[in-house]
Design a protein around this nucleic acid. Structure first.
Lengths: 337, 337
DNA sequence: TTGTATGCGTTATCAT
DNA sequence: ATGATAACGCATACAA
C-alpha cells in the first residue's frame, strides 16, 4: 500500500496524489475527491520512513530520560508526561532514550542515526558529556536542567538555589536557628547533579547571611531513606528545629520519622522545600513549598526546541523558573524540642 | 555524511562499505580496516530512515500509554520502564503514544505510518477499539492486560480475579465477616477497565463462596481519594473489618483514614490487596499483598512481541501472572470495631 | 491542472 | 573480493 497504488486506482499520477495529501498545489475538485475517496477506502497513510528520508526530518523528538532501572521520581515523570503531551499537540512523536552514563547505545543511535529532529535532555549533570555529543552532531537540543556553563545553549531550569534560600529566609524569619537541608542521594551529588549542588549553594548562602547553623544531609529518593535520614538527623542534631528539602520522594518518610519521634508539625518542627504540588498537598499538614511547574516547563522545552529546529541559527533561549513558595501549614515559629 | 562519502574517502564502492557494516559478505582484512578507520574517524552511522525504508523495518517498538494528562500510576510507570529497558537490551528504540479514546492522532500515526515494527498496548479495556485497528493494519502487537475475548492474540496479564479472591479467602480464614473491595475509579470501571471488572468478579465469587458480606467501592488514584473513600466506608459500614484493594495509589490515603479513625492495623482493621512491592513495603505495617512483577511482565511483553515480529504467523502466546500473596503484617484476626 | 523524472541513503542482486 | 545498479516510497522541480 503506497502512493503509487493510490495513483493507479484513482487513475492519476503519483505526484497528484502527493499534492492532494500536502495541499501544496491546487488540484481540481473532481480529481481531488476521487483521490480522497480511494485514500479513505484503503486507509492509506504515507510511509513515515520514506517521507523522513525525502524531507530530511523525522517529525520525531528524542527524550533522554534517566536509566529505566532506577524508578523515575514524580517530577521526572511529570516532565516526561508534559513533553509527550506538548509534542502530541504539534503532531510530533517522542522517542525515548534511557541513558545515564557516557556510553549509551540508545543515546548514540538517536544522536547519530538521524532518528529525531531534536532532543530534550533530562537529568543532566553540571558537566555532561551528552551536550557535547549533541553539539558535535549538530542536533538541536534543549535541556531541562542546566550544565555548569550553559552559555550558548537553550535550557529550562528551576532556580533551586534561590528557592532553597527563600525557604531558609522564611525559616529564619520564624526564629529557627538551626536548620537542615535534606538533599537528594549521595550518588547524585557525587555525579554532579545540578539541582543538588545549586540547592546546597543556596542553602549555604542563606544560612550564612542569616547567621544560622546549617546541617546538610543526603537522602535516597524513597520513603525508607527519608525516614532513616530524619531519624538520624533528630538523634544527631537535637537543636535542629526545621528542615528544607528538594527530595519530594522522601517526604512520606520524613513525615513518618517526625511522627515517630512525637514531633508535631509545625508546632515542634517545621518542614519546607521544593516539590511537585501533589506531594506538598499530600503532606500533613500541607507543605509550605515551591511548586515546580512541570507542565509549563515541559511545554516550554518543546517550544524552544521547535524554534531551534525551525530556525537553526536562532539565538539560544533559556528560562529559569522561580515559582512562589506557597504558604501552607507546615512551617511555624521555632520552639526548641 | 552518508555511506557514499565513506566509500569515496576509503576509495571503495558503497556496497563494500555496507557489507563491512553488516558483515553479510566477506571483505578482505585490508580494505575492511581502511573502511573502518574512515567510519571511526568521521563517526559515521547509517541513516535510520533510509535503512528503515530499504529494510522494511524500523527497529522501533511502539508503546501505547494512557493519555499523558492524567498522572501515570506507579504500576503503569513500572511497565513503561521495564518495556523501555527490555527494548534497549535488544537495541530497539521505543516510540511513545499517549492514547486513550478511539480517535487519536498519535496512535493513528504509529499504526498506519509504519513507524514501528510492533506495538505494546497498555491499559486496554475489555472492549478495545485499538486491538481491532492493529489487527486490521496487520501490525504485530502484544497487550499488557487483556480484552474480554483475548483468543487469538498475545497478551500478558495479572490474574486480578484470582488474587483478590485469594485475599478474600485469607481474610475469611482470619474470621472477617464483612469485607470491602477498594477498586479503581468509577470512570475506569465505566470505561470497561479489565482489572477493575475482574477484581470485582473475583471479589464477588469469593465472598459468596465464603458467605461473607462484600462492600464494593470505587476510588480515585490518589491519596485524597483513598482517604475520603475509607472515611466514608468506615462511617457507612460499621461492621466492615477488612478491605482488599487493587488501588495502590490510594494506600497512603487509606492508611491516613484508618489512623484518623483511631483504628490500628491489623489489630482493629485488616488491609490487603494487589500492589507494586514498594507500595506494600511503604505501608505501615507492611502490607500483606500480591506483588505485581512489573519488570518480568514488561520484559515478557517485549519478548512475545519480538517473536511475533520475527515469525509473523506464529501462534499467539499469553501469560497470566498469579504472584503469591506475600504475608506481611497488615492482616490479622477479625475484631469488631 | 496534471504528468514525468530525479534523488533522499540504504541494502541487496547481479556482474565482474 | 569488489563494483555497478536497482529498488524502497515519497516530495518536488521541471515540463506540458
Amino acid at each position: 500500500m503506497n502512493i503509487g497504488e493510490i495513483a493507479r486506482r484513482a487513475g492519476v499520477s503519483r505526484s497528484t496524489v502527493s499534492y492532494v495529501l500536502s495541499g501544496k498545489r491546487s488540484v481540481s475538485e473532481g480529481t481531488r475527491q476521487r483521490i480522497q475517496a480511494v485514500i479513505d477506502e484503503l486507509g492509506y497513510r504515507p510511509n513515515a520512513s520514506a517521507r523522513a528520508l525525502k524531507e530530511g526530518r523525522t517529525r520525531t523528538l528524542g527524550l533522554v530520560i534517566p536509566p529505566a532501572s532506577q524508578r523515575l521520581t514524580d517530577m521526572q515523570l511529570g516532565f516526561v508526561a508534559s513533553v509527550v503531551e506538548a509534542a502530541a499537540r504539534h503532531d510530533l512523536d517522542v522517542l525515548l532514550s534511557p541513558s545515564g552514563g557516557d556510553h549509551d547505545r540508545s543515546f548514540e543511535r538517536i544522536v547519530t542515526g538521524r532518528r529525531v529532529d531534536g532532543v530534550i535532555l533530562m537529568e543532566i549533570r553540571l558537566a555532561d558529556d551528552r551536550v557535547l555529543r549533541l553539539t558535535r552532531a549538530g542536533l538541536p537540543f534543549v535541556t531541562i536542567g542546566r550544565t555548569a556553563e550553559p552559555h550558548g545553549m537553550s535550557w529550562i531550569d528551576v532556580d533551586y538555589a534561590g528557592l532553597i534560600a527563600r525557604c531558609v529566609h522564611h525559616l529564619a524569619d520564624l526564629g529557627h536557628r538551626q536548620v537542615a537541608l535534606v538533599n537528594r542521594s549521595e550518588e547524585l551529588v557525587a555525579a554532579g547533579y545540578g539541582p543538588s549542588h545549586r540547592a546546597l549553594a543556596g542553602f549555604r548562602a542563606a544560612t550564612a547571611e542569616r547567621g544560622l547553623t546549617g546541617v546538610e544531609v543526603c537522602c535516597g529518593d524513597d520513603t525508607a531513606s527519608g525516614e532513616a535520614c530524619v531519624e538520624q538527623l533528630l538523634a544527631t542534631c537535637p537543636d535542629v528545629t526545621a528542615l528544607a528539602t528538594i527530595n519530594e520522594a522522601a517526604l512520606p518518610g520524613i513525615q513518618r520519622a517526625l511522627t515517630s519521634a512525637g514531633l508535631s508539625v509545625p508546632g515542634d518542627f517545621s518542614v519546607t522545600g521544593v516539590a511537585a504540588r501533589h506531594w506538598a498537598e499530600d503532606f500533613r499538614p500541607p507543605l509550605t513549598a515551591a511548586d515546580v511547574p512541570m507542565v509549563e516547563m515541559g511545554a516550554e522545552a518543546v517550544s524552544f526546541l521547535l524554534e531551534i529546529i525551525a530556525t537553526p541559527g536562532v539565538v539560544p533561549r533559556h528560562r529559569l523558573y522561580r515559582p512562589p513558595v506557597s504558604l501552607r501549614s507546615s512551617t511555624g515559629p521555632a520552639r526548641s524540642r
